[in-house]
């Protein structure tokens, strides 16, 4: 037996490491560290902000809360950081469980598009309320 752990099929295909796995691993964890602080703030702040006895009161409170620059910036950081972390995580789930080549590529592209779409919607919404 050779000193290689690679199968004959693996040698023929010539596929190895994609050489960018460590970057993905680190990005997932760096975003996780940021979210450890951002998400609890977001939960507490949001739940306090959206209190109110009726829909109109809750809407006014939420709008006032989001209009404050400090809240707007932290909301953008929390939401965009979460979507970044989400995209990396869903990418791994898709790569692990979807074995069909076409379906895998299609879902990876959809994951990217959906992530940027959510970021665009979040940034637009927060700026519209906060800058108005």
């Amino acid at each position: 037996m050779s000193n290689s752990m690679r199968t004959p099929l693996g040698k023929v295909r010539g596929l190895g490491s994609a050489r960018d796995g460590a970057g993905h691993f680190i990005a997932q964890r760096v975003s996780a560290v940021a979210l450890v602080f951002l998400v609890p703030w977001f939960l507490v702040s949001l739940l306090c902000a959206t209190r109110g006895d009726d829909t109109a009161a809750r809407f006014a409170n939420a709008e006032a809360w989001l209009s404050h620059p400090f809240n707007a910036i932290l909301v953008l950081l929390a939401v965009c950081g979460t979507i970044y972390h989400m995209r990396l995580g869903l990418q791994v789930v898709i790569e692990d469980y979807i074995t069909g080549h076409t379906m895998r590529i299609a879902l990876l592209i959809l994951n990217t598009f959906a992530s940027y779409g959510l970021i665009a919607a979040a940034v637009f919404s927060v700026l519209k309320v906060a800058v108005a």
Partner: peptide, 8 residues
Amino acid sequence: VGWLFAIA
């Protein structure tokens, strides 16, 4: 994100 969009 839908909630933020609803506020906007």
